[in-house]
Design a protein around this nucleic acid. Structure first.
Lengths: 342, 342
DNA sequence: CTGAAAGCGCTTACAG
DNA sequence: CTGAAAGCGCTTACAG
């Protein structure tokens, strides 16, 4: 009665599809199809297989599935930062849209580095995910080629670009910058500064829109552009604001490329007794948490993070499913939220 | 001369280990070992194999490797939130510690849900990662069992707990709460409130430490505990502060379980002309970005997020490598940072 | 609708 | 130090 364990097994001990099939009295292929809900299986069989799987506590081995089918149910999302709440918001809504559909979300953080992003993309593409979501268009040529060559459906987020075969959902960063300039000018500000950190491509596009509008109105002063590659932060906003006002006491309007910079400026202004918006009007960007509650309440540009994630996900789903896509570029717009600071 | 493609292939087209081995003139096993740096391969072979791999642009198929070896080079990290900068900081330092060692970091966000966490853990354990990092100890019994049964090395972060076979790195949330109470009392505050949101177990532990210290000094007033399960935010801090002061104008010290709550209170105080810390002393928790720059600068408890990530990673590495572990529980402490608000 | 065979691309366990 | 065989646990492509 001794069970003879003849062959040394490398098995993990967890139940396999074969065990499920045996218990259900069907072939493994049928079990596989039943579990995947392929339809071409008799309903009674589906019942039996599912019951067997439940009883054995069966879980598909993703590695085996990936190897056999050369596809995975993962969607890789590459963003430049997790410290920037903007991308956390986008991630959350992608998660909400894709998890219920059975996709696993792989989060890749490039830390605003083109090389790191290329490595991440190469890594993800090593076992091709079902889909790919990447941030913007500023990447290495190799990364671009990797994506193209992979054939993996890919949608670009946060920026817009019209190009053959490119799918994107976001809004025009440049036009947002223009809107801020127009608001400041309409308020009567004559000496408008642009203060930016990180200097990623989206930040620069906002700056361009801002600058071009000022130029058109004959109000552009290059000396009023304060750019630093340091990561954006509240503390940095304090410093930059102090330095700018010291150097150019005549400045009466400032567009901060990020809300945290603007909030720092608000704190520093308070500390120095500088009246906002009376002496200097301040506009932020993104409408992050706190913008509506600070003192004075921050005028800023609300960006559609959640919508970007949601729409990008459904666009990707269509592409994965080879369904027709209404439009390869989706402009979600933005909204200038005028509160107290400008 | 026509190449006869006899068998229909399902191949992905990407180069395989076999191709590398052929080009290098060795067996696939030797190529595998050379690429993995197993040592038991002649140096000349290693050279040849690596050159061949480079030439073919070979990348290991992770699914095949995982299937054959029944292990993966992934480390799964389960955190309760990405919106809370605390966990982003921890994640970053885990990333910094583990990526260079060749591990892929899988980020699981439980959204403060025990059931969601259990699902995540079950999912990750379906293809066992090399290691697991989970937040705290408040989880379902099933989740606990899954982890135990998996045999996957696991370290718990952010909280401490002495228990057989449990590895953790963090600090005592309760003692941090005690430290805040002692500071407030030493300042002369007699009516000390505890204001908390989210109400996860760590938040409650801080509250307990705070409460017990007040009780010991005969200063505890249960009416001064404001608890809400809503997610923590600056806006919520404004509301809670306003309501509390309306209901209990005698309150002269408040411990906010999170910096964002405290910052909201600072804004609201400013708006209502309430002097901080003269009329009410305010203490936050975590020392997040902005705490040092707001007005008045926030007194708070600095928590060792980066260190937690770093030490947890190295502990996990030791466990994965079956190396002896100095201590299964690592207390990294905390620091009360006294600034202007209390 | 169901299944036997072959294969996905690697690594383990044995030999030598 | 090197390799031939077998196997990891699924799914694809053919048949029926």
């Amino acid at each position: 009665m001794a069970t003879s364990t003849l062959r040394k097994t490398r098995s993990t001990g967890r139940p396999t599809l074969e065990a499920v099939a045996r218990l259900a009295g069907v072939s493994t292929i049928t079990a596989s199809r039943a579990l995947r809900g392929l339809g071409s299986v008799g309903p009674d069989y589906v019942q039996r297989v599912k019951a067997a799987a439940a009883e054995l506590n069966y879980v598909t081995n993703p590695a085996a599935r990936a190897l056999a089918s050369s596809r995975s149910d993962a969607v890789a999302v590459v963003i430049p930062s997790l410290s920037n709440a903007v991308f956390v918001d986008v991630l959350e809504s992608i998660h909400t849209a894709l998890r219920p559909r059975g996709y696993e979300i792989l989060i890749g953080n490039s830390h605003y580095s083109r090389n790191a992003e290329e490595d991440l993309i190469r890594h993800y593409l090593a076992s091709p995910p079902s889909g790919l979501i990447v941030t913007g268009f500023d990447r290495t040529e190799s990364a671009r080629r990797l994506i193209d060559a992979s054939g993996v459906p890919c949608v670009h987020i946060m920026e817009l670009e019209e190009a053959e075969g490119v799918h994107c959902v976001g809004f025009s960063q440049a036009r947002a910058g223009e809107a801020v300039a127009e608001h400041l000018i309409a308020r009567g500000c004559r000496h408008n500064a642009f203060v930016a950190a990180q200097l990623d491509s989206r930040m620069m596009q906002r700056g361009e829109g801002f600058r071009e509008t000022l130029q058109r109105k004959g109000l552009y002063d290059p000396d009023l552009e304060v750019l630093t590659p340091s990561p954006s932060s509240i503390g940095l906003g304090c410093d930059l604001f102090r330095q700018l006002l010291q150097r150019r006491p005549d400045v009466d309007g400032i567009f901060f490329g990020n809300d945290d910079l603007a909030q720092g400026a608000l704190f520093e202004a308070r500390r120095q007794g500088i009246a906002i918006p009376e002496r200097v009007a301040i506009v932020g960007f993104n409408d992050l948490a706190g913008a509506a509650d600070c003192v004075p309440r921050l005028t800023t540009v609300r960006t559609p993070r959640a919508e970007v994630g949601r729409i990008a996900s459904s666009l990707l789903l269509s592409m994965i499913g080879n369904e027709p896509v209404a439009s390869p570029v989706v402009d979600l717009g933005f909204e200038l939220v005028v509160r107290e600071s400008a």
